[in-house]
Amino acid sequence: MVTGKVYKYGNNIDTDVIIPARYLNAPSPDELAKHCMEDIDTSFATVPHHGDIMVGGWNFGCGSSREHAPIAIQASGIACVIAASFARIFYRNAINIGFPILECPEAAEAIESGDTVSVDYKTGMIRDETTGKVFQAAAFPPFIENIIAYGGLLPYLKARQEG
C-alpha cells in the first residue's frame, strides 16, 4: 500500500517526453530522473517524489521501446503509474523491471493533479483520499503476477533456470 500526491498528465504521453532521446546516453537512472517529463513539465524533476503517484490518460508510454522511460519515472521516486491504458512496450517494460502500473480508466478520469491517492497493489484498489472515491484497477493475469512476485522478468527466469 502506498499513499502519495498525484501528478497528472494527459493522453498519449510518449516516451520522448518521459525521457527525451538527448538524454538516453546518460549513465545512470538518477541522471535520467533529472530530466524526466521536462519537455512537458519543467517543474516535475525539480522536486523529490518519494512515493508520489503519476496518473496518465489513454496510451500512456507510447512511442519508443526505451526502458529508460519507466526507469526514469521509477528513479524519480514515483511509486506507481495509473493510466486509462498503457502502450504495450511500456507495459511490458514496467512489469519486467518490477515497477507497479495500474490500468483503470475511471480512476485516470476522476483523479485530479494534487489529490492524495492510496493504492493497494495486491487488490488493485485505488482510493482518492481527497475526494473519497474508490476505484478498482484490472487484476494482472497469474503469469504476470508471478513475474512481479519474483521482482521482475530476469529474477523469474534465473530462478526457473536454476529450479
Binding site: 519508443s64 521501446s65 519486467n96 521482475g152 530476469l154 533456470q161
Partner: peptide, 30 residues
C-alpha cells in the same frame, strides 16, 4: 528487438515486435 520499430520485419511475413532492454536480456539468456 529492443527498438520499437522492430515490427518492420512483418513485411516479410515474420512475427517481429519491439521490446525493452530487460526483454532483450531475457531473450539472450533463454
Amino acid at each position: 528487438g529492443a527498438d520499437s520499430h522492430t515490427c518492420t520485419y512483418g513485411a516479410l511475413g515474420a512475427f517481429s515486435t519491439g521490446v525493452g532492454s530487460t526483454d532483450m536480456a531475457a531473450g539472450m539468456a533463454s
